[in-house]
Design a protein around this nucleic acid. Structure first.
Length: 296
RNA sequence: GCAGGGAUAGUGAAGCGGUCAAACACGGGUGACUGUAAAUCAUCUGGCUUUCGCCUUCGGGGGUUCGAAUCCCUCUCCCUGCA
């Protein structure tokens, strides 16, 4: 059975994903599913560049504002919710458009990542207290293939022990009936775009947003590990000035963009476009995708 | 003006006679990544070289020494105490 059609838009931050997805959604009767690990949290609006209330009212949006800022979350949960959203959108006879920069979230859907049903949650707290050496021993004693992962990555080591296996990646077999569009900018104006975006965030009241989060949740690491948020900590401690906060956010955002680029580049199913230069080409491609519906 | 302290890689900072191209941290590059992912981890980061290795460095100049970033003299700049 051919799966329901799915349009996916990926790209580094500031590449124009939001803009394009809104255009396409309006034009092709679509609904947007966000694949953004920060926008999924409530009250983190400005720093995550969530679509505005107006934009969200014009096009149905899924998986934005669905958990509390400090709530535990995982890719496994994300995948579950995204699949449900896709079905829901199909039931409404709309085109599902999966949009975001969180590569792992995207992959979990388009490569159908499998996750274990019942994860022993409190085992993790115990494992967290152990050091790497001990974790390696546990892994080896359990007959796990610890050599196949980066051994100094405690988090992954724990994950391996928890799940009891490693999933082989297969980046060639993407979901059927899926069109994946990747957006990129020319290198020169990238930094400028990021700078502008950060300045806009400041004008929109990012400082207040972060202040409010801090006073409600403290320096919770689910919130303050994120770009646009963590950079304020030394500022609140009177260690740096506002200009430094801004330049740090710009710097960290540029690094994020680089990481996203690295992540998505491995994915051979992506069709890349220079945006917004080649917008018309994308529209053409999507048009034929919808009329044919037999991609891949 | 006198007495102390300091000047080391993009930045901060170890080293205080040989094993120093120089720990460590940050910053930067590249990459990995199926349950925290805007996370976490690996790797490189003076120049030339694929590796071996070679070359130039420790504010400037001059000494002592087989050998100096490390000791001495002197100059420049910075900080501290007394004037």
């Amino acid at each position: 059975m051919t799966p329901q059609p799915l349009l996916v838009i990926v790209g580094e931050t500031c590449s124009g994903k939001t803009d394009l997805s809104l255009t396409l959604a309006k034009r092709f009767n679509g609904a947007i599913i966000s694949a953004d690990s920060v926008a999924i949290r409530r009250k983190m609006d400005i720093g995550s560049s969530k679509p505005s209330a107006k934009e969200q009212s014009e096009v149905p949006h899924y998986l934005i504002d669905i958990i509390d800022p400090s709530e535990e979350f995982s890719v496994a949960l994300y995948k579950q919710k995204a699949l449900k959203a896709i079905r829901n959108i199909g039931d409404n006879n709309k085109l599902a458009i999966l949009v975001g920069g969180s590569g792992l979230y995207i992959n979990s859907v388009i490569y159908d990542y499998r996750f274990r049903e019942n994860l022993n949650k409190y085992q993790r707290d115990l494992l967290e207290t152990l050091d790497i050496q001990k974790l390696k021993e546990i892994g080896t004693d359990s007959g796990l293939a610890i050599k196949s992962i980066d051994l100094n990555n405690k988090r992954r080591l724990i994950r391996l022990i928890e799940t009891g296996h490693i999933r082989r990646k297969d980046l060639n077999k993407a979901r059927g009936n899926t069109l994946i569009i990747g957006l990129y900018n020319s290198k020169e104006n990238k930094k400028e775009l990021i700078k502008k975006r950060v300045e806009k965030m400041i004008n929109d009241g990012l400082e207040k947003e972060v202040q409010a989060l801090r006073s409600e949740y403290g320096y919770n690491d689910k919130i303050f590990c994120n770009i646009g948020y963590k950079e304020w900590i030394p500022y609140f401690n009177n260690q740096i000035c506002l200009d430094e906060v801004i330049s740090n956010i710009v710097k960290d955002t540029s690094n994020l963009a680089k990481k996203q680029k690295t992540w998505f580049r491995r994915n051979k199913s992506i069709r890349w476009f220079n945006y917004p230069l080649q917008k018309h080409l994308i529209v053409e491609l999507v048009t034929s995708f919808i009329s044919n519906e037999h991609f891949n």
